[in-house]
Write a protein that binds this DNA or RNA. Structure first.
Lengths: 188, 188
DNA sequence: TCCAGTTTTCTAGCATCGCTAGGATTGCTA
DNA sequence: TAGCAATCCTAGCGATGCTAGAAAACTGGA
């Protein structure tokens, strides 16, 4: 029976290698370069093996990568919690810029990860909690949850527009400071 | 020579039909459904004709659609100008929700439309101006341009996250009101 | 140790995609 | 009307995500 356990363990390990290879390739050449054939070559198996791990195909692999991303984001935000709104905002932006492809998988692609629902994965709720923790204390009369969502939207908008060359590059830090000023202060 | 003029005019008309068909199809079934073959069938010509109008292929067609979108957005924002920050914010969100595929073409896809540069198309600058007009009066000590960019990012983030089911649906209006409250007020 | 039976893996191929070369057709000019 | 030029279409290339069915490997019982 231990043989069987080892096989199961090896397969789980291979599943992780698939996601890792996808993330690595996406970060290096973008998600368009992540084809099932290249992924199969990277893990040194044939294409159909990918589908035994992820029946949903490429989308499912990207979703798995996105979930890893949410876990890592939650960790980063939690670590910056004691540095307040400014610290968390900075950590969020830094995360998105350090791993742009992963961030894309989390938000732009892989849209089948619904938030604010009962079946929302725990790691996604934890990432949200990382923002909520620093926003709630300064919510004032505003609903803390709603303010968190707006704060989050601002950070997300800054990142995506900045990446699409829609914002002036030289004002990057000034924008972030302004966000902190507008959201970090208690509003009555 | 009038024959020649008519031919040129017909070709320009056909170019417009291509973009119109692309927009219509994208809005109905998403940009993935906009294939060169289906576009060719819709305009009742063969595939290569598309490339004589748009040498850049499908991307160029999407970019052309995006530019139309910026022109329409600029118009919408200008019309809402006298209703202040709240009016412009509402108009912006309304535009994005009424034409989601077009909005995607403008911001998520077609990334080769750089902003904040010398060769930025005029319609894009006009859309930006529509936001700037209402934000600048309440900028206070903040740089008006930077505040406009942050305001814009917030709206954009709200729209994209909302569409990806990342925000709670029932708080939509509350979020927008909160944005107006945080950005519409003069900050010293 | 060998032999079914099951599980796992690969080869080969399908439909579709964006795009293009080269020939056929049309329209213009002299 | 003959020759030229512009226009358009047929056919096909390479690549994509994905899958059916054959081949291989492993399993557990005689």
């Amino acid at each position: 029976m231990t043989q069987r356990q080892r096989r199961v363990r090896d397969q789980a390990e291979r599943g992780r290698r698939i996601v890792a290879a996808a993330r690595e390739l996406a970060e290096a050449e973008g998600w368009d370069a992540v084809t099932t054939r290249r992924l199969a070559a990277l893990i040194e198996y044939s294409q159909p093996v990918l589908y035994s791990h992820f029946p949903g195909g490429k989308d499912a692999i990207m979703t798995a990568a996105a979930l890893e991303g949410f876990a890592e984001l939650a960790e980063v935000l939690a670590a910056a919690r004691d540095r307040g709104v400014a610290g968390v905002a900075g950590a969020y932006v830094e995360f998105a810029e350090a791993k742009p492809a992963l961030y894309d998988a989390m938000f732009t692609l892989a849209s089948e990860l619904p938030f604010a629902r009962d079946d929302t994965p725990e790691v996604m709720q934890e990432a949200y909690a990382g923002l909520f923790a620093v926003v709630a204390p300064v919510a004032g009369d505003d609903t803390a949850g709603t303010l968190t969502e707006v704060f989050w939207s601002t950070l997300h908008g800054l990142i995506t527009l900045d990446r699409g060359r829609r914002l002036s590059p030289e004002h990057r830090d000034e924008r972030l400071a302004l966000v902190v000023a507008r959201f970090g202060a208690r509003a009555g």
